Amino acid sequence: MSPSYGTEELWHLTHGMRRLCLAEYARDAQTIQDLTGEVATMRRHLDSVDDQLHAHDLHLRRGRDVWLVPLPPGGGARTRQRRSGLRTRGGSSGPSQ
């Protein structure tokens, strides 16, 4: 048996390798598309849960002074930032003299 391949044999080998690569690429692309769809579904579910938790939190606080403010478009409960801590006027944070 000769250690070299003929032109036709090389063509068939490379054609077979190209077909295998394309099949694997198509499978990977389909997997990525499936996972992207699942991520979008999970994101919608989490936003819904955030909204439910926010509504439940407001329900628990009923009777206290609670102001409802509209959320920004596309924003859920996770996008709000809460401020806490001491707020002072002026530029100095040290004791006044």
Results as ranks from 00 to 15, higher is better:
residue 55 A to E: 15
residue 61 R to H: 08
residue 38 E to N: 06
residue 6 G to S: 08
residue 79 T to C: 12
residue 59 H to V: 02
residue 2 S to G: 00
residue 52 Q to E: 15
residue 68 L to I: 09
residue 31 T to F: 11
residue 68 L to P: 05
residue 31 T to Y: 09
residue 26 A to H: 13
residue 65 D to A: 12
residue 11 W to A: 15
residue 75 G to T: 11
residue 64 R to G: 03
residue 7 T to N: 08
residue 9 E to M: 03
residue 26 A to Y: 06
residue 22 L to P: 03
residue 47 D to Q: 08
residue 59 H to Y: 06
residue 26 A to W: 07
residue 13 L to H: 04
residue 54 H to Q: 14
residue 57 D to W: 05
residue 3 P to T: 07
residue 53 L to F: 11
residue 7 T to F: 12
residue 90 G to S: 10
residue 73 P to D: 11
residue 9 E to T: 06
residue 6 G to Y: 01
residue 53 L to H: 13
residue 26 A to M: 13
residue 28 D to L: 13
residue 77 A to S: 11
residue 31 T to M: 14
residue 74 G to N: 01
residue 86 L to K: 04
residue 83 R to I: 10
residue 92 S to E: 10
residue 44 R to A: 10
residue 45 H to Q: 14
residue 95 P to T: 14
residue 44 R to V: 02
residue 85 G to T: 04
residue 33 Q to M: 10
residue 9 E to P: 01
residue 12 H to D: 15
residue 53 L to I: 14
residue 41 T to A: 15
residue 18 R to H: 04
residue 73 P to Y: 01
residue 20 L to I: 05
residue 23 A to I: 09
residue 61 R to T: 08
residue 77 A to V: 02
residue 63 G to P: 00
residue 35 L to V: 07
residue 55 A to L: 08
residue 48 S to Y: 04
residue 82 R to Q: 13
residue 93 S to V: 14
residue 58 L to Y: 02
residue 94 G to C: 07
